[in-house]
Amino acid sequence: MADEHDGEDPALDVPVTLFEDVEDLKAAVARLTAQLEARTGSGGEEPGEASADDEAAAGTEAPAAEEEEEWKYPPFILLLDPPEYDAELRGLVEWVEGVLVPGYLAEPSSDARWCHLWFEHPVAIARLHAAWLAWQECTDPASCGYTGPSVWHRDHLDPALRELRGSTGPFAGCVKGEHALAHRLPSVVPSAWTHAED
């Protein structure tokens, strides 16, 4: 039986635009591959090829627990130790003195106390830091939309200032520009742990 094609390739009727489309697709794949490699830092391995790192890791077991993810926002200041505490306190001082004091605190009075050495009052540091963390989140439209600042005033700032500036707050002994820290030191609170040892 004679070969119908006689060793020649059959003539295909393929439009030229199909070849252009294929070339465009190849260029797009090459561009996306380059972007992927740039973002992931992977070498130029072909799909299906194992890198040297993958081969080395194949014989080892994965760690039992993955490392904890970094905090997205700073943790509460009372949970920090130096030098992280000191860095967070510096940021808090900048926010309180740059935003809160000029924008929200009127002249101190017997009904609305304020201590210029507020950063020496641990309760004030805790409440102001909590308000600052909330401010960072609530003033970001991506996380709270456009109502975030209103929510921050209502739910965070107003209650914090009421507690700080009230007659029983941490500044209760700081009157007429005089700073008094010792007046608010707490006494030892009874604990179930200490009674269990008796």
Score class of each variant (00 low, 15 high):
residue 12 L to D: 11
residue 129 H to M: 04
residue 163 E to Y: 05
residue 1 M to L: 12
residue 3 D to T: 08
residue 127 R to M: 15
residue 30 A to S: 15
residue 94 E to W: 05
residue 190 P to H: 08
residue 180 A to E: 09
residue 10 P to D: 10
residue 27 A to L: 13
residue 38 A to V: 04
residue 79 L to A: 11
residue 171 F to W: 06
residue 151 V to M: 12
residue 4 E to M: 12
residue 110 S to H: 10
residue 168 T to E: 14
residue 34 A to I: 05
residue 182 A to G: 09
residue 40 T to E: 07
residue 74 P to S: 14
residue 121 H to Y: 08
residue 83 P to W: 01
residue 5 H to F: 14
residue 119 F to C: 10
residue 61 E to A: 13
residue 23 E to V: 11
residue 157 L to W: 11
residue 21 D to T: 08
residue 7 G to L: 12
residue 181 L to A: 10
residue 124 A to D: 02
residue 66 E to N: 03
residue 35 Q to W: 09
residue 19 F to P: 01
residue 164 L to Y: 01
residue 116 H to P: 00
residue 194 T to G: 05
residue 24 D to K: 14
residue 89 L to K: 13
residue 101 V to K: 14
residue 84 E to H: 11
residue 195 H to M: 13
residue 28 A to P: 00
residue 83 P to T: 05
residue 97 E to T: 14
residue 53 D to L: 13
residue 161 L to A: 02
residue 184 R to Y: 02
residue 125 I to M: 05
residue 31 R to C: 08
residue 87 A to Y: 00
residue 85 Y to R: 14
residue 172 A to V: 06
residue 126 A to S: 13
residue 44 G to H: 04
residue 174 C to G: 04
residue 197 E to A: 13
residue 175 V to R: 11
residue 2 A to Q: 14
residue 94 E to Y: 05
residue 15 P to F: 05
residue 119 F to G: 03
residue 23 E to L: 15
residue 111 D to R: 10
residue 86 D to V: 05
residue 151 V to N: 08
residue 87 A to P: 01
residue 148 G to P: 04
residue 158 D to K: 10
residue 147 T to Q: 08
residue 157 L to H: 03
residue 41 G to W: 06
residue 40 T to C: 05
residue 100 L to N: 06
residue 168 T to N: 10
residue 56 A to G: 03
residue 121 H to P: 01
residue 189 V to E: 14
residue 103 G to C: 10
residue 80 L to V: 07
residue 153 H to V: 15
residue 65 A to K: 02
residue 164 L to H: 00
residue 168 T to Y: 06
residue 17 T to Q: 15
residue 87 A to C: 06
residue 84 E to A: 15
residue 61 E to I: 03
residue 89 L to A: 10
residue 153 H to F: 15
residue 139 T to H: 15
residue 37 E to D: 09
residue 59 G to E: 12
residue 151 V to K: 07
residue 178 E to H: 08
residue 2 A to W: 10
residue 181 L to N: 03
residue 35 Q to D: 15
residue 33 T to N: 10
residue 80 L to D: 00
residue 23 E to Y: 06
residue 186 P to S: 11
residue 179 H to K: 06
residue 149 P to F: 04
residue 6 D to Q: 12
residue 152 W to G: 01
residue 84 E to G: 02
residue 34 A to G: 12
residue 136 Q to C: 13
residue 107 E to N: 12
residue 141 P to Q: 03
residue 74 P to V: 03
residue 125 I to K: 02
residue 120 E to S: 07
residue 25 L to W: 13
residue 114 W to Y: 15
residue 148 G to M: 06
residue 53 D to C: 05
residue 4 E to H: 10
residue 167 S to A: 14
residue 108 P to L: 04
residue 184 R to Q: 09
residue 135 W to C: 01
residue 82 P to Y: 04
residue 49 E to L: 04
residue 21 D to S: 15
residue 33 T to W: 05
residue 128 L to R: 01
residue 161 L to R: 02
residue 131 A to D: 03
residue 68 E to P: 02
residue 159 P to M: 05
residue 1 M to P: 02
residue 175 V to K: 04
residue 91 G to K: 09
residue 189 V to C: 11
residue 146 Y to A: 11
residue 146 Y to P: 04
residue 131 A to P: 01
residue 18 L to I: 13
residue 67 E to Y: 00
residue 135 W to I: 00
residue 59 G to H: 00
residue 95 W to M: 02
residue 74 P to W: 01
residue 144 C to D: 07
residue 184 R to K: 13
residue 21 D to K: 14
residue 27 A to N: 12
residue 131 A to S: 14
residue 194 T to H: 09
residue 162 R to S: 10
residue 92 L to S: 02
residue 197 E to C: 09
residue 196 A to L: 13
residue 42 S to W: 07
